[in-house]
């Protein structure tokens, strides 16, 4: 369903991703682990072109997407920028720092995409948004602004916002890293619910126990490259030196 083909990206001199390849099948849950600075988040952000890759392609639902920017053809740039949202609308993403919209109520946060991207009428959008918020347990917070929510609740709003659009894939970018410890398990439970529902997901996480529990496959990244891909059992018993060192340092 989602193929990453020889994706590379650098920030100036720093090569963050070096020729990365990965296939994610429909219904699969892939967890990406690795030390900080290994390019996990950047890889995730390349998948929906929030951080466009320098080279390589993303094939999503058999359609190929590449970065495009012409120096001279302004119209072509505009056309490309108009097309990208079509890809992004099918890929839900949840961020480390929630990024809920502070000037909108919980309900408005979730219904914005339904109205403006899916072009659903306001009343109907509110119904869908309400349903989506009910599923993450926020039915009593519909008219509340984000500054009155806890971190865990904000992250639930962000999850509901992504899910309301009925995406084909969900990307999670260290979604529990900014949460107070007691709020982490609640968010992980939300992801487990999606696992049960068969959602295709790519999860960048530092929660190793969780990753080994839910993942069908685990991707270990280091220094901008995928070092090893395998089932949780395979990765746990890995003989690859860097993966082994990383896991033993974390699982101790």
């Amino acid at each position: 369903m989602l193929e990453i083909k020889s994706v590379s990206k650098s920030f100036g001199e720093l090569h963050v991703l070096k020729d990365v390849n990965l296939n994610v099948a429909k219904g699969e849950v892939v967890c990406i682990i690795g030390p900080s600075g290994s390019g996990k988040s950047t890889l995730l952000r390349c998948m929906n072109f929030i951080s466009p890759p320098d080279s390589g392609e993303i094939v999503f639902d058999k359609v190929s997407w590449r970065s495009y920017r012409s120096k001279f053809n302004v119209l072509a740039n505009l056309r490309y920028e108009k097309k990208l949202p079509q890809l992004r609308a099918e890929i839900g993403m949840v961020f480390q720092h929630f990024n809920v919209f502070p000037h909108m109520t919980t309900l408005e946060n979730v219904s914005l995409g339904l109205q403006k991207v899916r072009k659903i009428k306001k009343d109907e959008a509110k119904q869908v948004a309400t349903k989506s918020l009910e599923q993450v347990g926020l039915s009593d917070k519909l008219q509340v602004y984000p500054d009155q929510l806890s971190g865990g609740q904000k992250q639930r709003v962000a999850i509901a916002r992504a899910l309301a659009l009925n995406p084909k894939v969900m990307l999670f970018d260290e979604v529990t890293s900014a949460l107070d410890p007691e709020l982490v398990s609640g968010i992980l439970d939300e992801i487990r619910r999606l696992v049960r529902e068969g959602m295709t997901m790519i999860i960048v996480t530092h929660e190793m126990k969780f990753a080994f529990q839910v993942a069908h496959r685990i991707v270990f990244m280091d220094q901008g490259k995928i070092v090893q891909v395998g089932t949780p059992a395979e990765i746990r018993n890995t003989q690859e030196p860097r993966a082994k060192a990383f896991l033993s340092s974390i699982l101790e």
Binding site: I50, P85, Q86, R88, E90, F95, F101, G113, A162
Partner: peptide, 9 residues
């Protein structure tokens, strides 16, 4: 980024 991620132009 959050706006872009939900498919807004």
């Amino acid at each position: 980024e959050a706006g872009a991620a939900i498919g807004l132009t």
